[in-house]
Design a protein around this nucleic acid. Structure first.
Lengths: 111, 111
DNA sequence: GGAAAGCACAACAAAAAGGTTGCGCTTGGT
DNA sequence: ACCAAGCGCAACCTTTTTGTTGTGCTTTCC
C-alpha cells in the first residue's frame, strides 16, 4: 500500500468515525438545513452540557465535516459537505465493485 | 423525535462507527472482491493478532456489514452490502438537502 | 460600569475501544 | 492415532472517548 493510499484510508476512517455517534449525527441533521448555528443553540434540546457538545463539534471539525466562524461572542458552525460527498462516492464505489465481483463469481460457477 | 427515527439513528451511527477504523476499512476492501475469506487469511499481512482481527470482525458483523458462515474448522466472512448502500443513500440525501438549503438561503438574500 | 450570555481551557472521572496472551476445543491431513 | 491449523472464550492492560464541573475571558446590552 502506497503512502498516499494510507493517508486516504486514515482520513476516510476519521470521517466515518466522526459520523459514528448519535449526538453528532443529530448535530449534522440540525446543520443540514443550511443555517449557521451557535453552540448554545445546538445544545438546546439535548441532555448534554454545552461542553460536551463543544467536544463533539471539535470531532466533527477535525474530520472536516463542519467549520466554525466567530461572530462576536458566539461561534457559529456550518456544514462542510465535501467530506460527506466523498464518503458517498466511496460507498458507491464499494457497492459497484461488489456487484461486479458477484457477477464474475456467478459466471465462473456457471462455466 | 419518534421512536422509529431514534432507532434508525442508532443503527446508522453504529454502521458509521463500524467503518470508522482503518483496520476494518482494510478488511472491507479485502472482502469487497467477493470472495469469502477466513479469519486467518484476513489476518495475514497485518501486524495484528488473529484475536484482534476477530474483534474487528465482530464489530462489523454486529453492524450488519459482514456475515460469517462456518465451513469445517474455519469461519468464512463475506460482505453484506445493504447497510453500506443505505449509508450511501443517506449521505446522498444530506448532500441534496444541503444544496436545496443553500439555494433557498441565497434566493432569500437576493430578494 | 455592571450583569449576563457565550465560550474556551483545564482537571478529573467513568466507560468503551483496541490489543495481547493463555488455554482449550474441533477439524483436517498423514 | 496423532499433529497442526483454525477458532472461540476469558482475563488483563493501556489508550481513547465521552462527559462533567470549575474557572476566567470577551462581548452584548441596559
Amino acid at each position: 500500500m502506497r503512502h498516499s493510499e494510507l493517508r486516504a484510508l486514515k482520513t476516510r476512517a476519521s470521517v466515518f468515525a466522526a459520523l459514528g455517534d448519535e449526538t453528532r449525527l443529530s448535530i449534522l441533521a440540525k446543520l443540514g438545513r443550511g443555517e449557521r448555528q451557535s453552540i448554545a443553540r445546538l445544545t438546546a434540546g439535548t441532555r448534554l452540557t454545552r461542553q460536551a457538545v463543544t467536544k463533539h463539534l471539535r470531532v466533527l471539525a477535525h474530520a472536516g465535516v463542519v467549520r466554525s466562524v466567530r461572530a462576536g461572542r458566539e461561534s457559529l458552525f456550518e456544514l462542510e459537505p465535501r467530506p460527506l460527498e466523498e464518503l458517498r462516492d466511496f460507498l458507491d464505489q464499494v457497492s459497484r465493485q461488489w456487484d461486479v465481483a458477484l457477477a464474475r463469481l456467478k459466471a465462473h460457477v456457471e462455466d
